[in-house]
């Protein structure tokens, strides 16, 4: 095979489309022809005729005439690339771009540097007098107070945990009960009932007047409210009556048995007092030894 034939069949030789005889002949030719071997290496990409700078400029020229520069696209995803948030394929493409684009490579390097430096800029020394100045400013202010809800909670907890709280609660409860229902021995009991009846009549008048004012749709509601109110008032007065009766029964019973109870109480108190005196006498005798000496002497 001569050089002209080899060059004609070079493409088929590279793609493996030659017959076995032709393939062997091409290999034999390559073994001794240096010119054809160089051309073969150039076609295979083993020898690059362009220097690196020219390769880069050629790439830029081709991109400028086709898709445009890829730097903008690369920089759009550069932060994600630096944060390792890209998929393998995109990450590989950016890596390839950075290998050949010095500008983007510098920016990527700066981004990495910023990631290390910026957090260290969060704190700056305000100087040696700063803390004292702040404390002096705030010492003149009122103490910080907890929020309303928190304050209310703390107040309630403190109130409940006080030792006298049970007594106070009982006192307040009794007071409320007396104010609501009165007491059987109340001097103004009649006045209270008169006042209740006055209140009831005033309520009835108010409901009647409201029913005159409000539209008819509300009229029934007013009447119902009046009935409910009357019913409630009746129940309350019945309850009051029952309480008064029971309390007056208690008073009558207690009046009858009062003298007997006092006698029993004083009798038991007298017995207890006598026992205590006897005990004290025995103790005194034991301590002074008078009883023993009397016995011994006797």
């Amino acid at each position: 095979m001569d050089c002209v034939t080899f060059k004609e069949k070079l493409a088929d030789f590279l793609e493996g489309n030659l017959t076995r005889e032709a393939h062997e002949a091409a290999k034999r030719h390559l073994s001794f022809c240096t010119d054809c071997r160089r051309e073969f290496d150039i076609v295979r990409g083993h020898i690059n005729l362009l220097p690196e700078e020219e390769q880069a400029s050629l790439t830029r020229a081709i991109l400028a005439r086709t898709s445009g520069h890829a730097c903008e696209r690369a920089q759009q995803i550069l932060c994600n690339y630096m944060d390792n948030r890209l998929g393998d394929e995109e990450s590989h493409l950016v890596t390839l771009h950075l290998e050949h684009c010095s500008n983007c490579k510098t920016i990527a390097g700066t981004l990495a540097e910023l990631g290390e430096i910026l957090p260290g800029m969060a704190e700056l020394d305000p100087g040696p007098y700063f803390t004292d100045a702040v404390l002096q400013e705030t010492s003149m202010l009122a103490r910080p107070r907890a929020g309303r809800l928190k304050g209310l909670k703390e107040w309630w907890t403190g109130l409940v945990q006080r030792p006298r709280f049970a007594w106070e609660a009982a006192y307040v409860g009794t007071l409320i009960f007396v104010l609501l229902f009165g007491t059987p021995v109340m001097a103004l009991r009649d006045f209270q009932s008169n006042r209740n009846s006055g209140f009831q009549s005033r309520m009835r008048e108010a409901v009647t007047s409201i029913s005159r004012i409000v539209p008819e749709t509300w009229h029934d509601a007013g009447e119902k409210a009046g009935r409910i109110k009357d019913d409630m008032a009746g129940r309350i007065s019945e309850r009051q009556k029952a309480i008064r009766n029971s309390v007056s029964d208690m008073h009558e019973n207690s009046d009858k048995g009062w003298s007997a109870r006092i006698k029993t109480y004083f009798r038991s108190a007298g017995d207890w007092f006598r026992k205590m005196l006897g005990g004290l006498q025995g103790l005194w005798d034991y301590l002074t030894g008078s009883d023993n000496s009397d016995t011994e002497n006797g």
Binding site: M121, A122, E123, L124, D125, P126, F130, T131, V134
Partner: peptide, 8 residues
């Protein structure tokens, strides 16, 4: 927190 606030 003074250094942080001052830095901000």
């Amino acid at each position: 927190y003074q250094s942080r606030i001052y830095g901000l």
